[in-house]
Design a protein around this nucleic acid. Structure first.
Lengths: 227, 227
DNA sequence: ACAGGCGGAATGAACATTCATTCCATCACA
DNA sequence: TGTGATGGAATGAATGTTCATTCCGCCTGT
């Protein structure tokens, strides 16, 4: 295949980039066909390696997928934190995270769908359950979304809803939209994205008397002013 | 394909019940393990029939699943229309439909997840794409959600966002929350459900001077919600 | 007695995993 | 520098398993 090239460091690390190729092939195929829908043979072909080679890098199919998930999920979370500033207002932090999810999905469609697939598999469900019921064993790498919600509730700018509901309201629409976009069902321009993210904020936003929209107040409705 | 419809008076045996059992077993298992993750043998065992019997009622596995999807999806849509009144205000109609999705998911978790699985499979994606690009071949059975959105936009009570975005904002959180609930990760009380649905409305709601709508009952017109 | 529904063993295709073999860069030695 | 030895990496045919589908003898209702 390759001529002498960069054979400098001898036989150690993955000359042909094979591990990388296997990983990418797996992500791409599983994101489309799911775990049981993508045989090892298909992965090998897509990666341009022999089937046996995969087992040189990964113990078995389960391990392969689990390892990829850990890596991809970690990178994803890392991406979200880029440019994230805890000092910013709650709304800004919220929008930053939501936009991050959005952009990650648009830029990494295969990884995004791979993560989705994983979370919706029995294994992913188990994992999520364990994460909730015993908060142990994690690096505290959790999405800072929870903290934003807590802060927002303390400031009374975010509705008093259970965490799960807030997460659903924030992330649900984004996942939905990104999937449609990836599938080629829609084309999103910048304005639509911004407006949709703002709408996610509207969903969780707790209105207070202080920040009511600066619009006309119908006098007929304001007869009672807090007796 | 066809089963002679039980030749006249067959008051006994088990003719209809078996088909039913096969269908339910398929829904339950596929909702959990996905299409490729549930072998025919597993379905047969769960249904309490021989593997061969399944082929007496369905041509092959694909047909089985497709037929079930058509049936379940139809019943689901039908459920949503129960008690639906086109004459009601936009917000009421919207909440009716959203609540319908929610309740259907809570009452029929296996069917709900089955539909999900199907829509997320390559076949489901193709189907959705066709549905969008050529609006042909359907019984006009579409979710009336689109009509609610159109009406709401005409009345300027719903944001001017692309249909896909509105759908994502409305349905995304519900699907998310129902899945969590089915997985046993959360327990939802009536108030939380109501508030979450209201939040979905907030997401798509276009504020005008005429309405401020904190969740409130008609009896008390207090616009302030703070104790 | 018999027509046809039924269960489940039979069948061949497809799958995950293994393994004997090939390949090739490096190196010892002349 | 040339030559052959060495060992890890790569491969795909081989292996045992599981799958979807078919087939056949049993059994039940009439």
């Amino acid at each position: 295949m390759n001529i002498h090239s960069i054979t400098t460091s001898s036989t150690q690390t993955d000359p042909g980039n094979k591990r990388e190729r296997i990983i990418h092939a797996t992500i791409r195929l599983i994101s489309e066909y799911g775990f049981h829908g993508t045989p090892i043979s298909m992965i090998a072909q897509e990666a341009g390696v022999g089937a046996g080679t995969i087992y040189r890098y990964f113990k078995d199919k389960d391990t392969l997928v689990l390892e990829i998930f850990t890596q991809v999920n970690g990178a994803f979370k890392q991406t979200l934190l880029h440019g994230y500033d805890e000092g910013h207002p709650v709304r800004d932090r919220f929008l930053h995270l939501c936009r991050g999810i959005f952009q990650y999905g648009m830029k990494n469609p295969y990884e995004f769908k791979f993560i989705e697939q994983f979370y919706n598999s029995p294994y992913g469900t188990t994992l999520r359950r364990e994460k909730i019921f015993c908060n142990c064993g994690d690096t505290g790498q959790d999405l800072p979304l929870e903290q934003v919600f807590a802060a927002g509730q303390a400031q009374q700018v975010i509705k008093k809803l259970p965490l799960a509901a807030l997460i659903a309201l924030a992330i649900g629409p984004i996942v939905f939209l990104v999937k449609d976009s990836i599938a080629g069902l829609i084309q999103l321009d910048e304005a639509t994205i911004n407006n949709t993210l703002a709408a996610c904020w509207d969903a969780i936003h707790q209105e207070t008397g202080a920040d009511r929209q600066p619009v006309v107040t119908p006098s007929s409705f304001t007869t009672e002013e807090k007796p």
